[in-house]
Design a protein around this nucleic acid. Structure first.
Lengths: 140, 140
DNA sequence: TGTAAACCCTACTAAACCGATAGGATATAT
DNA sequence: ATATATCCTATCGGTTTAGTAGGGTTTACA
């Protein structure tokens, strides 16, 4: 299941995306519009900033805005940033690979193969859809 | 990420599947063969019994064996039993549907649509592969 | 140059979940 | 009877999650 952190993050991003070109948008505005705890959202946006998706301006009239073009941000990137690996087992993760501690041999592991297939099909969906596309769908 | 409960469950099932036709197999044998804590495995197998996949015989020479034919058990069914919903948000779950508490309208929710696609592609993989198939792959 | 607005950072907490353990109740083959 | 095995309930330490608290830093602007 998606953690609230991830859900909130996506909602904040689509909100930002739908009202871009108006300069930085403060946390408080996003929090109110999307019904998210201000402080919690603060930490989420910080993660997105460190991940290179957003950037911010401090002080009066400050706020958050895009560093990357939403058309160039696949949903897979957002979800990885906010919830970590997309794969269901570490041994098939592209970005967070780790050997399963309890598995003697990956090459003959049925779970490994199955989850590899699942990862591929999931990733296909999440890489092909950009944040911009998602936002467009909402507003039609 | 897959919980250990699920991983252990699948491993136990593939083990059972690969040495079927020899009558009931006790927990202790499976636990040792697959390196799983005996007590933990106990609760897992109980779940699989309640879910209609396995059944058991008590007392001496007792143990667990299949109620359903492994060829008729899609991996999706096993994973649902052991870890619950396959969907990443409750509002797109087929078997565990729930309205998202923070979502005003599903019809216009971008996350809903995206996760619907993800669910479909994941399910396609998990429904088409049976426990029997998985076991075969391991042993070749 | 003072001040309000806004981001930045660390620490904390309550609740839930996870993996594992403990101990006994129940059933059964011999 | 007794040994063997499943069944059931309860508990526990550790981790994660969602949210809160409080203060530090930067900046626009009067």
């Amino acid at each position: 299941m998606l953690a609230k952190k991830t859900k909130y993050g996506i909602k904040a991003l689509t909100y930002l995306c739908s009202r871009s070109n108006n300069g930085p948008i403060p946390i408080s505005v996003i929090a109110e519009a999307e019904n998210i705890s201000h402080k919690f959202l603060e930490s989420i946006l910080l993660t997105l900033k460190k991940g290179g998706i957003l950037t911010s301006k401090k002080g009066k009239n400050g706020g958050y805005y895009f560093l990357k073009n939403p058309k160039d941000i696949p949903m897979a990137e957002i979800i990885r940033l906010l919830s970590g690996p997309i794969a269901m087992v570490p041994c098939v993760s592209l970005n967070f690979y780790e050997k399963c501690d309890d598995c003697p041999d990956e090459a003959t592991c049925g779970i490994n193969r199955l989850m590899l297939e699942v990862r591929d099909s999931t990733l296909k969906v999440l890489k092909q859809k950009s944040l911009y596309q998602l936002t467009q769908e909402i507003n039609k």
